[in-house]
């Protein structure tokens, strides 16, 4: 198992290096590049700009600049926000909790619902339930998340008045119930696409397992169907879900961005959009790099967990 983990770790490091190069390239594509902050102010003469460029080390060759930038990123110095001059790292940090709260709750909803739908669909294959679930999952995958959010706000906030139309809590109230009340709509909206993905994946994983020899053996030795499904089929079908959880991470983050926009949820997605609006490139680049690193770590973690859970992988 150790060689497998080391190999996987090595692959992630190479990926991280390429990811950082892409991040650096985008930073240089920005109008004015790292100088845009100063170029916008009218009092600066070309001479001043040149001096700042020299002070920032922008007259050096690109590989040297990249290396310098990389070292700073690694040491936690991600630059400062153009907006309030606070470190990018702390700006991102202050928005993380809201996003993770939203992602965690909707992932839990999606896994519970998706697995249930997928397993039931596989067991009762081609039943009415299965047909409706399959078509429903496809439609759910096709609905734009932000539009579904708008419809949810219209129905449950505007028409019925059951749920708040946005924000994380009522101002002056931060009790658990209040926060939970605000969380329901965005979490369900974000969970829609996720549920569909989990259900489709679970259905095919379960169908795969049901066709295996050991299931036939279990049935042949006279185990009741419930025991076969619970003890043999489901435990094996749940394994690949670890991988899916890792693979789903980028989609989940992207979905969170869109959901947060509609529900004015003060998380990373909202911060990203505001920063794009203000042309606050350090924060934009910071979030871009941060999310890519999170995705990398997520898939690494998923692979490691899988190796722990499934002995067949470790040997390979």
């Amino acid at each position: 198992m150790i060689p497998f983990l080391l190999r996987r770790l090595w692959q992630s490091l190479i990926l991280l290096a390429i990811v950082s190069m892409i991040g650096f390239a985008i930073l240089y594509l920005a109008p004015g590049g790292p100088m845009s902050q100063f170029a916008q102010s009218a009092q600066m003469s070309q001479e001043d700009l040149d001096r700042i460029a020299r002070q920032l080390g922008l007259d050096r060759t690109l590989p040297v600049q990249y290396w310098d930038w990389l070292l700073r990123m690694l040491s936690g110095d991600w630059g400062r926000s153009f907006r309030d001059n606070s470190p990018v790292w702390s700006v991102i940090g202050s928005h993380l909790r809201a996003t993770f709260e939203l992602m965690a709750v909707s992932t839990l909803i999606a896994i519970a619902l998706g697995c249930w739908i997928g397993i039931l669909g596989a067991i009762r294959r081609y039943s009415i339930f299965d047909m409706v679930a399959t078509v429903g999952a496809m439609v759910a995958l096709s609905i734009p998340t932000f539009w579904f959010g708008l419809i949810a706000i219209y129905l449950f906030s505007v028409q019925l008045g059951w749920l708040p139309a946005g924000n994380r809590q009522t101002i002056g109230d931060g009790s658990f119930l209040d926060v939970a009340h605000h969380l329901i709509a965005p979490a369900l909206v974000l969970a829609l696409v996720e549920t569909a993905i989990w259900a489709r994946f679970m259905r095919s994983a379960m169908l795969d397992v049901i066709g295996q020899d050991y299931i036939r053996t279990a049935r042949a030795k006279g185990l009741p169907e419930q025991a076969v499904l619970r003890g043999h089929a489901m435990r094996n079908a749940l394994l690949p879900l670890i991988t899916l959880a890792g693979l789903q991470f980028p989609t989940l983050l992207g979905g969170a961005l869109v959901t947060e926009t509609v529900f004015t949820w003060p998380g990373m997605g909202r911060l990203f959009l505001d920063s794009v609006e203000y042309r606050d490139y350090p924060v934009v680049m910071g979030i871009l790099m941060f999310s890519a690193v999170m995705v990398l770590l997520g898939s690494l973690l998923a692979d490691m967990l899988y190796a722990v859970a499934d002995p067949r992988i470790r040997m390979g």
């Binding site: 990926l15 892409i22 961005l257 979030i287």
Partner: peptide, 22 residues
């Protein structure tokens, strides 16, 4: 292929918006 993997690490919407703003 590692280049492909690396781009896939960025959530599509984030990458698209960052580039669209430029």
């Amino acid at each position: 292929m590692r280049f492909v993997d690396a781009i896939l690490c960025f959530p599509t919407i984030f990458l698209l918006l960052a580039l669209a703003a430029l």
